Amino acid sequence: MFLEKVLLGVTLAAPIGPVSLEMIKRGLRNGFLGAFIVRLGGAIGNTLCLIAAYFGLSLFDNTSPSLAFCSLAGSLVLIYLGVKSFLDKRSHLLSLTLDIPRYSIGNGLLTGFILSIANPIGIIFWLGIFAATLDSSIDGKTWLGLFENFAIIAGVLTWGICLSGVLELGKRFFNQKLIHSITMIAGLMLIFFGLKYGYKAVGQLLTIFPLA
């Protein structure tokens, strides 16, 4: 289960979004650390949202219809993100940007943090993801449920290390074709996770609201 959630974190972070774009800009100019510091700041923001989602879910018990509906909503979000990533045909600017200064740790952390929490529905997003991935054998009110989902953040950071490593090699190894390949694979994996957790959520709802 831990490795599965690490993989989910990787697939959530892999599609090119605001944090990844900032990593690319800084990484192509400043190398590994310039890119990874941004991802680390983003992961801190993600962690705060995840903790907020934990306290939100602690209001419900494992048999609550509200928790089951949150789980289903989170599954649908994963499927939506997967379809969106798989169909993404955008071109992303890969040229070195001269107005990007040499990295500073504080600036990179703050930029990644702000980008990760700037979306007003961020906590709602993590609420759905947390509910969808919560192991039914674990009481959502215990700290174990929270620490289990920190594996998602570990996956986000794992992807940050991989992307930063590629950016360290330079623009010759990081091109538009590679971006499209990564985005499509991540999209397929997100769809897979969405369908898996959605199946579990529907099963929970049928248990609570039997058809006959």
Results as ranks from 00 to 15, higher is better:
S20M: 14
G122H: 05
N175L: 11
L144P: 09
I105W: 04
M189N: 07
W126K: 02
A151P: 11
I105E: 04
A118V: 11
K200V: 08
I121K: 12
P18D: 07
I179G: 03
L110S: 04
F192N: 03
I105K: 07
I37W: 09
G187E: 02
L93A: 13
I179M: 11
T47C: 14
N62E: 14
N46F: 13
I105R: 01
I24T: 08
T97C: 14
T111N: 05
L195Y: 02
W159Q: 11
F36H: 01
P15H: 01
K5S: 13
V166N: 09
L205M: 10
E148V: 12
L48I: 10
T47Q: 06
L67Y: 12
L67H: 09
L28H: 07
A35N: 09
L21I: 11
D99N: 15
I191S: 00
S71E: 06
V10H: 00
W143R: 05
I51W: 03
S85H: 06
S104Y: 01
G42W: 01
G203A: 04
G203Q: 06
V166F: 13
R102C: 12
L72S: 01
I123F: 06
K200D: 10
A68W: 05
K200S: 05
G198Y: 00
L157F: 10
S58D: 05
L163S: 01
I161C: 12
C70P: 05
N62P: 05
L188F: 10
L167N: 08
K5L: 15
I117Y: 07
I153G: 01
T97D: 15
S95D: 13
T158I: 14
I161F: 15
L87N: 08
M23V: 11
G122A: 13
I24F: 10
I152Q: 05
F36S: 02
G187A: 06
S85I: 03
T47R: 02
M184I: 07
L28F: 12
A151E: 04
T142C: 14
D61E: 15
D61Y: 07
R172A: 15
I121A: 13
G42F: 01
L8H: 01
S58F: 09
N119K: 09
K177L: 13
M184T: 00
T207L: 12
G187Q: 03
G203T: 00
L98Y: 08
V10Q: 00
S116N: 14
P15G: 05
G45T: 03
D139Q: 08
G122E: 13
A151C: 13
L48C: 10
N149R: 14
F2P: 11
I37P: 02
F60Q: 09
L7F: 11
L110M: 10
Y54P: 02
F60M: 15
F147L: 15
G145C: 07
G17S: 11
F150S: 07
L94N: 09
I16K: 01
V6Y: 01
I152K: 05
G198I: 00
S181Q: 07
L59D: 11
F86S: 03
I129Q: 08
F192E: 03
L178E: 09
G106W: 04
G27F: 03
I24H: 04
F32G: 06
A201S: 15
